[in-house]
């Protein structure tokens, strides 16, 4: 278990003091994939780098399984670091070494015997799906392949924790998904704790169990990924969630919605959120059958897979002569455990 207790970090720069991290409290359970999302400059990197002592908190403490990493130094810190693997945005491979030699690198640092290093590296090459490329140099690999080497290297010393610092941010969408699948696979197979920092909600949605949203050094919201997606509280969280859940650009939807509100002031525009099995039931057509005087038009909809099942959202317009029917329709959705949000006209 990883615990951040009242962690703050300030940097002194020429322009004055910068509060990179402010009073962060976090508990990351073992064996889970924990995501920290935020825009650049929010303090994500500083937080993840405190986990392997590349940064130290100014106040507060960071503990991993009871040992306080923020107070370790020298040899003790290096020994703790052997148990923590890290994957980087720009891979940070040694260009002078082949794939196999790069994976052996952390084993050399841990002073593992040569024969054992070779065997271990070979196994890891197979685990990340790079068979046949053992003797290639990084310059001969694609971005996705480089990151696979990065992941294999991070796993070489059988770490308890894997840190992923924007590991997919330099990759194209297709490759991103492949690397994310690999991370899920590793988390399940090796049962290790994975801490992911990213600015892409896509990454959180696809692989994380828990998420914390970071804004200007503070954690503004945290919880299970599905809860945060279904019911984002803070404005910044809503922006992140929308970035991922609307297939059309949010701006386009907003334009259409405000035009419809203008044209049909008595109609209701509702955003429905389905999750898990609800996403697979014919709830909308059932509602129409119950309230035959309600007309419906669909504005925009989509569905996504998360670690805890499907998550769908649908923008619809409901029109009726009778106000009661519209209210009834909303209540029906609520009883079917579909969340509703009535979109109001912007003032």
């Amino acid at each position: 278990m990883i615990e951040f207790k009242n962690v703050s970090k300030t940097f002194t720069a020429k322009e004055g003091t910068v509060h990179a991290v402010k009073d962060v409290n976090l508990t990351i359970p073992d064996g889970k994939i924990y995501g920290i999302v935020g825009y650049s400059g929010a303090g994500k990197s500083t937080i993840i780098r405190m986990l392997n002592g590349l940064e130290f908190p100014t106040t507060g403490s960071v503990t991993i399984n009871g040992s306080e990493i923020s107070s370790l130094k020298g040899k003790e810190l290096r020994e703790q670091r052997l148990k923590i693997g890290m994957v980087f945005q720009h891979f940070n491979l040694l260009w002078s070494r082949t794939v196999l030699e790069n994976i052996e690198f952390p084993l050399e640092i841990a002073k593992v015997a040569k024969e054992e290093r070779r065997q271990k590296a070979q196994k890891l090459v197979a685990l990340v799906g790079l068979e046949g490329r053992e003797n290639a140099y990084p310059s001969e690999l694609s971005g996705g392949q480089k990151q696979r080497v990065g992941i294999a290297r991070a796993l070489a010393n059988d770490p308890e924790i894997l840190l992923s610092d924007e590991a997919t941010s330099a990759l194209d969408p297709q490759t991103t998904d492949e690397v994310l699948d690999l991370l899920i696979d590793i988390n399940k197979k090796l049962n290790l704790t994975v801490v992911v920092i990213t600015h892409e909600m896509h990454v959180i949605r696809k692989i994380c169990d828990h998420v914390a949203v970071l804004d200007a050094g503070k954690i503004v919201e945290q919880g299970p990924v599905l809860d945060v997606f279904k019911n984002p509280q803070q404005a910044i969280t809503k922006r992140f969630v929308n970035q991922e859940t609307s297939s059309a650009s949010l701006d386009d939807t907003t334009v259409v919605v405000s035009e419809l509100l203008e044209k049909y002031p008595n109609g209701l525009i509702v955003r429905l959120t389905f999750h898990g099995d609800q996403a697979k039931l014919p709830i909308v057509s059932e509602m129409l059958r119950q309230f035959p005087d309600v007309d419906l038009s669909i504005i925009e909809g989509n569905i996504h897979q998360t670690q805890e099942g499907a998550l769908g959202s649908l923008y619809i317009q409901l029109l009726s002569e009778h106000h009661d029917s519209l209210q009834g329709a909303l209540e029906y959705f609520n009883t079917m455990r579909v969340e509703t949000e009535v979109i109001k006209r912007e003032q």
């Binding site: 980087f88 040694l94 690198f105």
Partner: peptide, 29 residues
Amino acid sequence: IDHGVIEAAEAMGATKWQIILKVLLPESM
């Protein structure tokens, strides 16, 4: 030398000498 590579070695628990012998010298050869 890309500073990220040196930092990666530090994050793996490398000593100063290991960084010199295994990163600085070969990477700048």
